[in-house]
Amino acid sequence: MKALPATAGAGHLSWGRRGFRITVPDWATRVLRTDKDAIVVASGVVELLLAGALLALPKERTRVGWAVAAFFVAVFPGNVHQWRTGRSAPLLDTDRRRLLRLFLQLLLVVWALWSTRMPCRR
């Protein structure tokens, strides 16, 4: 679980930055009063912080898991925007792939919660 937000966060700040800007809806820039690049950078920083929290705070992994899941929900409108506008990005260059990405997002939310649940005490 830790590697996914770390890799995605690094991508937001470097090689994938341009592609991630495509997913930012225009309304988000108006609501947040900033540009798409700043939103991409901020989301990358948040992902890196979440990955760091998963590593540094093992006793809080359930809470951090909820935060990761909430982050995945928060960025979902960007996935919907990309699907609705038909804008291509790396690995998301067809309508089918963009649609499948929406379902993957749901799986990521479930995975974040499942993989960070505390072990049962007996």
Rank of each mutant, 00 (worst) to 15 (best):
I39A: 03
E47A: 04
S43R: 10
R84V: 15
D93C: 10
V24E: 00
L49Q: 06
G65F: 00
A67N: 01
L92T: 00
L92H: 07
V45K: 08
V68L: 08
S43F: 04
V41R: 05
L57T: 08
D93S: 13
Q82M: 15
R84I: 12
K36A: 15
L91I: 11
L55I: 09
A67T: 04
A53L: 13
D26E: 15
V80D: 02
V24N: 01
R61C: 05
F20N: 01
R87C: 05
A74L: 10
R63M: 14
R21E: 14
F20W: 08
F72P: 00
K36L: 12
T23L: 06
A51Q: 01
F72H: 07
R84A: 15
V41E: 02
V73K: 01
G9E: 04
G16A: 15
W27P: 06
V73W: 02
V80C: 10
T23K: 01
P58G: 11
W83Q: 12
T29E: 07
R61M: 06
R17F: 00
R84G: 07
R18M: 03
D37I: 06
T23D: 03
A51S: 07
R33N: 13
K59V: 07
T62A: 15
R61I: 03
I39S: 00
H81M: 07
V80Q: 08
L50E: 03
T34H: 06
L32D: 09
G86P: 02
R63C: 11
